[in-house]
């Protein structure tokens, strides 16, 4: 009996306890250089094409029900003629202490051994709790089975990516860091009996970016592009601790994490835009 309870508790920890994995196999992360990002939106469409995200139409868009897994936010500062517009792409940050994971009553979202915030469609019952808890507002809810509403009207459905599930009504979804590409890369690596190489996994958004603002890779590897750009040492597990500050360990003065004070430990690292006026350097 005790053994059974222990096992149950262990299972509970895997799904519930942030930071259950002391060390990740890979620690997938993204670096977004805001000084390169132009806000063009190529990534948004690339994501939609790769991940079978339905088009919801004008009516549903007006109700705020678009399903795009990522978005470009724009901030307009100042009055004419001293106007500054700033862009920032926002996607699921696969937070280490993800608030959504604590929220879900049915364990439909949890952290896996690769540092990814997993969404399991089959488990999801659509309570919407995770979306309410998410500080970055990146979770999207399927209000309808859009496939039946004509979002993939024939022959548009011929384009659907066979490696990604087409979601149905009542399911929460979000950015997966293109898990199908990660799985494919791991599959290749396993064939050749090696680890996944840096740059081998390229999510759709990163691939499409014309100005090369996005970089994807493994934070465990100090030689990966992401580690170098973010100026991080090998295995920066300090970032997972409560109250950790990226600025403390990063060698790159431009590196920051979005809404770091909320303590969700996101794994998307932004590089500050270089811009006249409003400096936010050293802002704690």
């Amino acid at each position: 009996m005790a053994g059974f309870l222990d096992r149950l508790l262990e299972r509970f920890k895997i799904y519930r306890e942030p930071g259950y994995y002391k060390r990740y196999d890979y620690w997938w992360a993204m670096v977004v250089d805001l000084d390169r990002c132009t806000g063009c939106g190529a990534c948004v469409t690339a994501c939609q094409a790769e991940n079978n995200t339905p088009v919801v139409g004008e009516e549903e868009s007006g109700k705020g029900r678009v399903l795009n897994w990522m978005r470009i936010e724009r901030y307009v500062e100042g009055e004419y003629p001293d106007v500054k517009v700033k862009f920032i792409p926002v996607f699921c940050a696969h937070c280490d202490k993800a608030p959504c994971e604590v929220a879900c009553p049915v364990y439909a979202t949890y952290h896996n051994q690769d540092g990814l915030n997993v969404q399991v469609y089959n488990r999801c019952v659509g309570t919407f709790t995770c979306a309410t808890y998410c500080p970055y507002d990146v979770r999207r809810f399927n209000w309808f089975t859009y496939k039946d509403k004509g979002s993939f009207e024939s022959p548009l459905d011929e384009q659907l990516n066979p490696d990604v599930t087409v979601r149905t009504m009542g399911v929460m979804e979000k950015c997966t860091f293109c898990i199908q590409r990660i799985v494919a890369a791991k599959d290749r690596a396993k064939d050749e009996n090696r680890k996944v190489r840096d740059g081998e996994v390229i999510p759709a958004c990163v691939q499409s970016c014309p100005s090369k603002a996005l970089t994807f890779g493994d934070l465990n590897d100090p030689n990966s592009q992401v580690s170098k750009l973010a100026g991080l040492p090998a295995e920066p597990y300090y970032l997972r601790e409560s109250g950790s500050k990226l600025a403390k360990i990063s060698k790159n003065p431009r590196a920051y994490r979005l809404l770091e004070d909320l303590n969700a430990a996101p794994t998307i690292i932004y590089l500050k835009r270089v811009m006249k006026g409003s400096s936010t350097i050293g802002h704690e």
Partner: peptide, 11 residues
């Protein structure tokens, strides 16, 4: 290895 992770078989 990672055989019980949901994202091994579901995507």
């Amino acid at each position: 290895r990672n055989g019980t992770d949901c994202w091994t078989c579901h995507k």
